[in-house]
Amino acid sequence: MHLDPSPSHGGPAAVSADVRRPDGGRRALRIGLGGPVGSGKTATVAALCRALRDEVSLAVVTNDIYTREDAEFLLREAVLPPERITAVETGACPHTAIRDDISANLEAVEDLEDEAGPLDLILVESGGDNLTATFSRGLVDAQIFVIDVAGGDDIPRKGGPGVTTADLLVVNKTDLAPYVGSDLARMAADARAQRARLPVVFQSLRGEDGARDVADWVRERLAAWVA
């Protein structure tokens, strides 16, 4: 499994995505979730929290575009205790906060580890953005890109950094495919073509245990992280 290579810069320890905390312990695995507005990132985060919270110690950072709605949704749904959910403000530029200037997000994850830790896993949810928005490797160890069938079945074909390079591509809301005229088989074929051997999950969160495949993927990542 490919993770950020061991820190090679000559700078001080624990200022960027180093795997050790200042106290020498292993920091939490950080997984980013990005994708267009309305594709179901927050719902996926909520489902992952429910699926994993009894097995691992986890927390969430949300990056809202201009409100605290995503954080408040998670609080309302009570998927985690409030001290395990933090919102970062992004100044109208969600991609800046997860890619070009990750300082606020790094602070949020470190504060969560300090105040709610020890943690095994931190999910960093991006604000809804466009198909080019990806996470910096200085912020997350792996990233999930969430699109949905209602956004158009040509999105996998169009590609873009999110679709082609994310460690996991999630095609959400498959239950809507018949209603919006999306061709799931075509989406799957296009995604395979764009992503070589990187995995793709089709999911609907309407059913029982809808995030099972994504949760399994996260479990694998966690196992590799602590190995």
């Binding site: 906060a97 200037d101 606020a104």
Partner: peptide
């Protein structure tokens, strides 16, 4: 202005 120190989120 692109120095990554968080200024972009403030007006």
């Amino acid at each position: 202005g692109r120095f990554p120190a968080g200024g972009h989120a403030h007006s």
